[in-house]
């Protein structure tokens, strides 16, 4: 591949890393989470800071 095309494709196919706390510890990306924990992470709602 020429350098020009290489530059044009920089990042193609590369996903974002999303670091989340799984139980008490962190996991680098969510690819390795089991199905149940993934769906739990999806359902998490933010907690407001109002009293």
């Amino acid at each position: 591949m020429s350098e020009k095309t290489l530059n044009e494709k920089l990042g193609q196919g590369v996903g974002f890393e999303r670091i989340r706390r799984i139980t008490g510890y962190l996991v680098g990306t969510m690819d390795k989470w089991n199905d149940a924990k993934r769906s739990e992470e999806r359902d998490r709602v933010k907690h407001s800071l109002s009293m």
């Binding site: 590369v14 974002f16 989340r20 706390r21």
Partner: peptide, 10 residues
């Protein structure tokens, strides 16, 4: 907990 994301490219 809060979102910590990273773009490995940039």
């Amino acid at each position: 907990n809060h979102p910590v994301d990273r773009d490995p490219v940039c």
